[in-house]
């Protein structure tokens, strides 16, 4: 088992949530760490880009796992799942239903490309600051303005397919 101890020691798990709160005082809400290796925080979309830049700079190998779009009924949420220094930091951005848009982070992290296209396709969240969002997940003949993961999505016109 000694080899395994060595393996683990190169993983310095930092308290990334505390660092984030210290770096952006007053900007980070609902900070919670339910268990080791998991952290949750809420930021506004205005600081999303600086926060992303900070997180990606936190140690080697920091990357964006994916972006989840959630429709709670009252609002949309875009949850950015970052793997940073031994912690899965889930960064929530709350969005108004009437105007769901987030700034693109593709220039900071090219790997975000597909995830931004996906939340636009399926939840209709606009991503600003990058060119046209090409379709990624939905079919070519999918009607405009239909976002299947929204809770109030009525289904396809004419009850097409299933």
């Amino acid at each position: 088992m000694c080899g395994q101890e060595q393996q683990r020691s190169d993983l310095a798990r930092r308290d990334i949530l505390a660092e984030l709160c210290a770096r952006f005082p007053g900007e980070v809400g609902e900070a919670a760490a339910p268990r080791p290796g998991r952290a949750w925080a809420t930021v506004s979309r205005e600081v999303l880009r600086p926060v992303t830049e900070f997180l990606l700079g936190c140690g080697p190998g920091a990357y964006l796992s994916t972006i989840t779009a959630v429709d709670t009924g009252e609002e949309f949420q875009a949850i950015y799942h970052f793997w940073v220094a031994g912690t899965e930091l889930n960064l929530r951005v709350r969005l108004d239903r009437r105007e769901p848009a987030v700034p693109s982070i593709m220039d900071l992290h090219p790997g975000a490309n597909f995830y931004e296209r996906e939340i636009h396709d399926l939840m209709g969240i606009e991503v600003t600051g990058r060119g046209k969002l090409e379709r990624l997940a939905v079919p070519d003949d999918w009607p405009e303005g239909h976002y299947p993961l929204r809770k109030d999505w009525p289904g396809l016109p004419g009850g097409e397919s299933a």
Binding site: T66, V70, D71
Partner: peptide, 16 residues
């Protein structure tokens, strides 16, 4: 469930 989101590994690797 209210929402299930899946990100399979190929999506992460495909772009690369």
């Amino acid at each position: 469930p209210e929402r299930v989101k899946v990100r399979a590994p190929t999506l992460a690797n495909l772009f690369a």
